[in-house]
Design a protein around this nucleic acid. Sequence first.
DNA 1: CTGGCCATGTAATGCGTTACATGATTAG
DNA 2: CTAATCATGTAACGCATTACATGGCCAG
Lengths: 183, 183
Amino acid sequence: MSLKHSLLVLLSGQPSTGYELSQKYKKAIGFFWQASHQQIYKQLKVLTEEGFLTFEEQRQQGKPDTKRYQITGEGLDELKRWLSSEVKPAKTNDALLVMLYAGTHVDRAVLVKEIQRHKALHEKNLKKLEAIQDLYFSLGKDQQKEYRFPYLTLKRGLLAEKAWLEWATEVIDELSDPNHDLE
Amino acid sequence: MSLKHSLLVLLSGQPSTGYELSQKYKKAIGFFWQASHQQIYKQLKVLTEEGFLTFEEQRQQGKPDTKRYQITGEGLDELKRWLSSEVKPAKTNDALLVMLYAGTHVDRAVLVKEIQRHKALHEKNLKKLEAIQDLYFSLGKDQQKEYRFPYLTLKRGLLAEKAWLEWATEVIDELSDPNHDLE
DNA sequence: CTGGCCATGTAATGCGTTACATGATTAG
DNA sequence: CTAATCATGTAACGCATTACATGGCCAG
C-alpha cells in the first residue's frame, strides 16, 4: 500500500498538520491518490510509532490542539527505498462501467442520465486541473523546473479526463440516437 | 460496493461456477473490475445467504465438487434496483504517479525504468483488448447488437490504454533527454 | 439561523490482499 | 521434472468507508 508513501512524499516537501495534508489530497494529488481524513490521522499515528515521523504540538485558540508532523531521517530512507521499488499498476473498479455492461437490463434513458451525471463531474474535475495548469504556466522558468514532476502527473490527469469525456460523449450520442435500434 | 453487483450482472447472463466467474473477471471485465478468487468465493456465499443466488452441487472426478450458481428472482430485482441507482465515480490510487510526483528524490534512470516496465504491461493489456475487439468485429450484425453494451465498455478500455501509453511515451522521452536540465 | 469550512479524532464495519491448504492434469 | 493451469476454499491481517463526536468561525 502507498497511503504511507504518499504521506512521506508530501511531508518530504514540508512539515504539515493532518488537516493540511488532507487538503492536499483533495486539491493537489486527489486525482491520482485519494485518502479520507480518518485514514490520514490514523496513518500519521502509525508512521510516528514506526519512527518515520515526529511532531510538535501547537496550541490554538478556539480550535483543537494540532500536531505538525515532519519526516525523520528514517522516514526519508524509507521513502527513498520505496521510490526504487516496483509498484503495482493502479487497479480500477469502475461501477459505472459495470452498469453499462449490463445495459440491456436498464431503461436507456436512466442509463444515459447516469452517464451524463458522471460527465458533469468529470468536466468539473477537468476545469480544476486546467486551473492548476494555468497556474503552472504562469510561473517563471525556474519555478516551472521545480514543479516539473508534479506537472507531469497533472498532465496525466488532464489527458485522462479528456479521454474519458470523449468516450462518454460518444457513448451518450450513440445511446441517445432514437434510430439506433431500428435498422 | 459493487463486487456484489458485478457478480449479479455476470450471473444474469448465465449460471456459472466460482472458477468460471473468476476467469471472466480476468478476461472479460478485468479492465474495469477486478476481484480475486478468494473474494468471489466468499461473496457467492454471502449472496446465497441473502437469497440472491441459488446453486446446484456437481461432483467431478479428480477435481473438488463444484457449485453452479444462478441468480434468483430476488437477485434480478436487486440488480435492477442497483442499475437505476447512482454510483460513485471510480476512485484511483496510482502508486506510479505518487513516485513520479516525488521524482526529485530518485535517480532518473530508475524512475524511467519503472515507467517503462509499466508501459510494457499496458501495451500487453492493449493487445488483449484489441484481440477482443477483433473478435467483436468478426461477428454478424445481430451478434454485434447483442454485445453492444460490453463493446462500449471495451471501447473505454481501449481509449484509456491508448491515452495512458501516449502520456507515458511523452514522459519517458522528456525524462530521457540528457539535455533537458542543461538550459 | 443555516450551511459550509476549519479542525481533530474514535469505533464499527466492510472490503481486499496475502498466506496457507490441497490435489489433479497438461505442456514443455 | 517443472511450471502452469484447473479448481475450491479458510484465516489473518490490513486498508477503506461510514457513522459518530465535538465545537468554533464566517458568509449569506
